[in-house]
Amino acid sequence: MKNLNCFQDKTKRSVYLHAIFMSLPAFIAILIFNYIPILQAIRYSFYDYNIISGRMRWVGLANYTDALKDPFVLNSFWVTVKYFLMNVPLLLLFGLILSLAVEKPRFGTGFLRSIILLPVVTSLVVATTIWGFMYHPSNGLFNSILQTLKLPPQGFLTTEKLALPSLVVLGVWKDVGLVMLFFLSGLTAIPYELHEVAMLDGASYFKRLIHITLPMLRGTIIFILIFTSIGAFRVFTPVYMTTKGGPLRSTQVIVMSIYDNAFRYNQMGFASAISILVALILIGLSVIQFLSVRERKSKN
């Protein structure tokens, strides 16, 4: 081709130019709206910063050591980990099942998809109010069902051991539609020919699922895993609108602690220190998830 040679010359420079211009808007936006605030937050974490008086007193690493020694903060970390361990696998599992169920356009799949997305679309205020009633310790829907089955009524949001799992159920209900969507967009990228060939060879549905679908969804799964993990660690609004960390701090997730310290106890420095600790944990978590899935890839 006559253009090939001059094209090769320009390629490297063209690549760099394109790289710079096309990533510039996002780069600047992230710098201004993400990194500068984060750096400020890091700065706050080294001070005893009272919001109301505006007084800032240098304390060095004291906020961090206090946070790591504070039983309430440690409890919050533990609660958040528990939430994460319950929430993420359920979201992945149900998201996958639902997406497989509605993948092929059949009678009713459009309707089913919309229904599953309703919770995503419903405002959190309404969702938490309604679930509050369904969870009501005496007359809620779930307790009515339990009582019909001659089982004792439960205080879903008022009992220490049940509050967090109840919030997990609410969280999964609310977000599974979105996870289903992500899986769907990953599934549509799998060429149907692969399934055709496998079916001709006599492979069953499950065999195809395990050997074709799942491997090809690897990238999507990593993405969903990281998306839901970070979401689980950052959960705040459902807790804020229902239990506010109770009963007995069994739902005191870490962001609730940050919020309480920053805006209720007016200790901005301490709250910032906790946030940085959370960030470090999340970075570690993502790296681990990334590397472990990468390793499995190289084994294949």
């Binding site: 008022t158 220490e160 506010k244 109770g246 009963p247 007995l248 309480d260 209720r264 106890y265 007016n266």
Partner: peptide, 20 residues
């Protein structure tokens, strides 16, 4: 006062109401 509100009137009283 805001600290008192959060720790005593809110958290402590809620825990007691829930049966601690």
């Amino acid at each position: 006062h805001t600290i008192y509100q959060n720790i005593i009137s809110r958290d402590m009283m809620l825990d007691i109401a829930y049966g601690a």
